[in-house]
Design a protein around this nucleic acid. Structure first.
Lengths: 183, 183
DNA sequence: AGCTAACATGAGTGGAAACTCAGGTTCTCA
DNA sequence: TGAGAACCTGAGTTTCCACTCATGTTAGCT
C-alpha cells in the first residue's frame, strides 16, 4: 500500500468515526468524504461499501470495549468494575450513536462475529467474578446483563438522559442485579 | 365528508398501522397506499405529510396505552399493575416498531404533546399508587420509571428478545424498583 | 336524471444518497 | 529520472422516496 493511500485510509476512518458518532449510521458517505477532505471516490476505493466502513469502525470500537472490560475485571472489586463498565458504556452511548447501533445489532446480525464474541467473553468474565465476590446475584445470566446493557444504551440515546437521570436509572438496574439485602 | 372519503381514511389508517408496525417509520407511503388498495395521491389527500400520518397513528396508540394504564391503576394491587403494564408494553414493542419509536421521541420531540402528557399522567398515577401500597420504592421518580420503560422497549426491539430473556430481564428491573427485602 | 363539488388517480418532479468510471495525478522503484 | 502501477477525482448513474397536479370519476343533493 502506498504511503498516501495509507494516510487517506486513516483520515477516512477518523472522519467516519466522527460523522457516525454524531449522526449514527444514517450519516452520508459524502459527509465522511468532506470531513476527511477527500473525494468520495476515494472513500469507496478503501471501503467498497458503506457497510464495510461501518464494520471497520465497529470492529475497532468492540476491541476497545473488550480491553476496558478486561482491565476492570482485574481490579479488586469486580462488582464495582461491572457497574463501572456499564455506566461508562451508557455515557458513551449518549455521545456516540454508533455505540448504540453497534450493540443493538450485536445480538442479531453477524457483521463482525468474532469481535462481538470477544466482547461477550470479556463481559462474562466480569460478571462471573462479580458473582464470586458476592456483588451480583447468582441467578443473573450473561444474556440478561447484555440485554440490560443494550436497553440502557438505547434508552440513553433515544430519550436524551441527563447525568442525574442516568444515575438514578442505572441505580435501579444495579439494585436489581445485586443480591437481596435488608435496608 | 363524503362516505367514500371516510371509508378510505379508515383503510389508510389501518394500512399505515400495519406497515409502520412492521417496518417502523421508514416504511414508505407507497407501501401504505398499496396495503390500503388506494392510489398514493389519496393518502396525501387525507394526510398532507407522512409525519401527519404517523402522528395520527401515534395519537391513537397513546390513548389506548393511557386507557390501559388507568384500568390497571384501579385494580387491587397497583404494584402488580405497574409491572403488568410495563411487561405488556415491552411485549408490544417487540412486535410493533412504531411503539418504540413513539416512546423514544416522546421524551424529546413534541409531535403530540397532550397525548404524551396524558400517558405520563396515567403512569404517574400507577406509580404513586404502587408506592402507597408499598410495592415500589419511594425514592423512584416518574422519569426514572419512564426511562426504564423506554430502555426496555428499545432493548426488546433492537436485540430481539425471546419470552424467556424478556422475563428474566424485566425481573431484574422490577427487583430494582421494589423496596429492599431480606431473601 | 342531472349537476357539481368533492374525491381518486398515477405519472411526474425534485432531491438525497449509494455507488461507478474515465481520465488526470502522484508515488515508488529501478 | 522516467515509466507505470497505484491512486485520486468528481461528474454522472441509479435507486428510492416524499410530495404534486392535471385529468378523470363519483357521491349526493335538487
Amino acid at each position: 500500500m502506498r504511503a498516501d493511500a495509507r494516510r487517506n485510509r486513516a483520515r477516512i476512518l477518523a472522519a467516519a468515526e466522527k460523522v457516525f458518532a454524531e449522526q449514527g449510521s444514517s450519516g452520508s458517505t459524502e459527509q465522511v468524504a468532506a470531513e476527511a477532505e477527500v473525494a468520495i471516490g476515494t472513500v469507496f476505493r478503501h471501503f467498497p461499501t458503506k457497510q464495510a466502513l461501518l464494520q471497520a469502525i465497529m470492529k475497532d470500537l468492540l476491541a476497545r470495549l473488550a480491553d476496558q472490560a478486561s482491565e476492570l475485571a482485574a481490579q479488586e472489586d469486580p462488582a464495582a468494575g461491572l457497574f463501572t463498565f456499564f455506566a461508562s458504556l451508557v455515557s458513551q452511548a449518549a455521545a456516540k450513536r454508533t455505540v448504540v447501533e453497534l450493540l443493538a445489532h450485536a445480538g442479531i446480525d453477524v457483521p463482525i462475529p468474532d469481535s462481538v464474541q470477544t466482547l461477550r467473553h470479556s463481559i462474562e468474565t466480569l460478571l462471573v467474578q462479580a458473582q464470586k465476590a458476592g456483588g451480583v446475584r447468582h441467578d443473573v445470566r450473561l444474556d440478561t446483563v447484555i440485554a440490560l446493557l443494550i436497553s440502557a444504551c438505547q434508552g440513553a440515546v433515544h430519550a436524551g438522559w441527563d447525568l442525574d437521570l442516568q444515575d438514578r436509572t442505572l441505580a435501579v438496574i444495579f439494585d436489581g442485579l445485586r443480591p437481596a439485602r435488608c435496608s
